[in-house]
């Protein structure tokens, strides 16, 4: 090893008379293996930073979900798990074709490489296309993030019907279990008294299992609380803060909630748009990389002796895929 390094080190000198062994070997490396190892390690480290970048958002999600599960359960009802599921399949397939493209590059199969990269690229287009359909759908109902969240009542009902249709069975089961089907199953905007009533009722149903009083109770009068069987002094106000103040009764994914009983739904859409948006940007970057690899493959740059860029581009694409594999269940399924 040491010998090999020294001899090649001497002749690979800058502007040296012999030039490089391989035009793809940068002047400061001794061997192709060393260059390849550097690229690999560098890429893995870069991927680690990407994971940590998303990690901040996953943390935010975890903290909020554990304190305000109702926001997430309600929000998830507004997402279309079928479109999300199709997108998951699209990305999985594209990851497969990418891996296949890398294999082709290693074997020097240029045709296969081009085909693999091409299909992967199309997968990216498909994913972004479906994503934009989903976004447009959300926007049309006024499901924006944070301060821009403005669902129209008509649309609200429509969305709920839509969801009803889809989850007919699970929704029914939930109604039966909670015994609250009458008060808020229809999804139409209820007047505030009615809304309060339904909150209190469903909360009353859940109360025995709960240690902490649900956040939804926070606005009720002392009489009403006693009537419901709570000790008023134990009900905390301002339940929004994550630092340990009251969290509401954790609904299961089968509980059917309505906007009236869930506060701060816009936060669900904030985190949804931030995470999927940041992921979408990564998909676009990945597509740019694949496009660039495609052009280089057309030029015939790659072969069994030199396929490092395809390999590294593939790693990146797999990571983008992997992040979606986490996002999909977190937003759409649970």
């Amino acid at each position: 090893m040491a010998d090999a390094v020294q001899t090649s080190g001497a002749s690979a000198g800058h502007e040296g008379p012999h030039g490089h062994h391989d035009p793809n070997l940068a002047h400061h490396f001794d061997t192709m293996e060393q260059q390849f190892e550097c690229g690999k390690l560098g890429m893995w480290l870069f991927l680690a930073t990407e994971v940590l970048l998303f990690g901040g958002l996953f943390c935010w999600y975890a903290i909020w979900r554990s304190n305000h599960p109702e926001v997430f359960v309600y929000g998830a009802q507004k997402l279309d798990w079928k479109l999300g599921g199709i997108n998951t399949i699209v990305l999985l397939v594209s990851s497969f074709t990418m891996a296949w493209a890398v294999g082709c590059a290693q074997r020097g199969n240029r045709q296969g490489l081009l085909l693999g990269l091409g299909i992967t690229f199309l997968g990216g287009i498909g994913f972004m296309g479906i994503k934009s359909v989903e976004y447009t759908e959300k926007f049309s109902h006024g499901y924006y993030w944070g301060g821009s969240y403005n669902p129209t009542h008509h649309e609200e009902g429509h969305a709920a019907d839509h969801a009803d249709g889809e989850h007919a069975e699970t929704a029914d089961a939930a109604h039966a279990e909670a015994g609250a089907a009458d008060s808020h199953g229809d999804g139409h905007a209820a007047d505030s008294a009615h809304g309060e009533e339904s909150v209190a009722d469903s909360a009353g149903e859940l109360a025995p299992q709960e240690v902490r009083p649900p956040a939804a109770l926070a606005g009720l009068s002392a009489e009403r609380l006693t009537e419901l069987g709570y000790e008023p002094s134990k009900v905390l106000l301002a339940a929004e803060a994550p630092g340990g103040l009251a969290a509401s009764a954790p609904p299961t994914s089968e509980t059917k909630l309505s906007a009236e009983e869930v506060r701060n739904v816009h936060l669900f859409f904030s985190i949804y748009f931030c995470m999927t948006g940041l992921h979408g940007i990564h998909v676009l970057i990945g597509m740019a990389v694949i496009g660039w690899l495609f052009v280089r493959a057309l030029r015939g740059d790659f072969g069994p002796g030199y396929f490092e860029p395809v390999d590294l581009g593939g790693l990146y694409w797999h990571l983008v895929d992997l992040i979606w594999i986490y996002l999909f269940p977190l937003f759409y399924l649970i």
Binding site: W145, G146, E240, L267, S270, I271, C274
Partner: peptide, 10 residues
């Protein structure tokens, strides 16, 4: 106005 760190939005 995402509201992540803004108490006005929870």
């Amino acid at each position: 106005k995402m509201g992540f760190f803004n108490p006005a939005y929870g």
